[in-house]
């Protein structure tokens, strides 16, 4: 197994308060890594640091042997890290398929001159983007809904679509921020199935999740954050019996 992502004493402070402090974290290629922790543990901030939304106050981020510390979000995406958001982010006023076509933008080279003159490059790239979108749509099981407006599909379908948009950029590492938030139990099953399918297709997955049953079934390894610090790391079995983790959750009055 090789490392795909690791952070070294990654730190983020907001006006003197540290939201993430000296976190050493690593993800192996091809695994599903879960990040858990009580509310306010700094999980989302941690994702924002990795995906370039926030510049870290200290530490390093290395992605497949390349330092990406401080790169802006779009540059991180270009390196091959895609992410989803806790609240489902989509382009709400367009069609399902249109949402995914743009996901291929980072692989296209066409500029506005190409689009004005409809050069062969423009045509080819438009076609590739459409093919890519359709392939991803089938992959996430929304092939049938391609030409429907986003507003008309179910919450669970929107979750899939949001994951699809991230996949459309053809990432090597996918960060999922609470993918199961706001959907019911049965739908969780199919979402887990999708996440496994993503991993089987060769994409490394790292997710934040509150639904413990899902995490325990899905993750190969788990990292636990509390007050911005890493307090444990290990397999689901190890984590379940880790005293510090139990204490953190009970101490924070958090029933997972």
């Amino acid at each position: 197994m090789t490392l795909i992502l690791n952070t070294e004493s990654l730190t983020k402070t907001f006006g003197g308060l540290s939201a993430v402090s000296t976190v050493d974290f690593n993800v192996q290629k091809g695994e599903i890594m879960a990040v858990i922790g009580p509310n306010g543990a700094g999980k989302s901030t941690f994702f924002n640091l990795i995906s370039g939304f926030l510049p870290p106050s200290g530490g390093r981020i290395v992605f497949s042997e390349e330092e990406i510390t401080g790169l802006p979000a779009h540059a991180v995406a270009l390196k091959g890290i895609a992410r989803t958001f806790q609240t489902t982010h989509l382009f709400p006023n367009s069609l399902v398929i249109d949402n995914l076509i743009i996901g291929n933008r980072l692989r296209t080279r066409m500029n506005f001159m190409d689009s004005i003159f409809k050069t062969s490059r423009a045509r080819r790239e438009e076609r590739e983007s459409l093919d890519n979108a359709r392939e991803i749509l089938d992959f996430v099981g929304l092939g049938e809904a391609a030409s429907r407006p986003v507003d008309s599909i179910s919450q669970e379908a929107k979750k899939r679509l949001a994951i699809g948009l991230a996949l459309a950029t053809r990432p090597r590492l996918l960060l999922l921020d609470e993918p199961a938030a706001g959907i019911n139990f049965n739908e969780t099953e199919s979402l887990m199935h999708l996440i496994n399918k993503i991993r089987d297709s060769g994409i490394t997955v790292c997710l934040i999740e509150h639904k413990m049953k899902m995490v325990m079934n899905l993750a190969d390894r788990i990292t636990v954050l509390n007050y911005g610090m890493k307090i444990a790391e290990g397999t689901p079995g190890e984590i379940q019996s880790d005293l510090r983790v139990i204490e953190a959750y009970l101490g924070g009055n958090e029933v997972a």
């Binding site: 939304f53 779009h74 895609a82 958001f85 709400p92 076509i101 743009i102 933008r105 438009e126």
Partner: peptide, 19 residues
């Protein structure tokens, strides 16, 4: 074109566009 789609993606959400 993709260029126009890029603009519209920004209009809809700058955050999402950058991811």
């Amino acid at each position: 074109s993709m260029v126009g789609r890029t603009f519209m993606a920004i209009r809809n959400s700058e955050e999402l566009a950058s991811t």
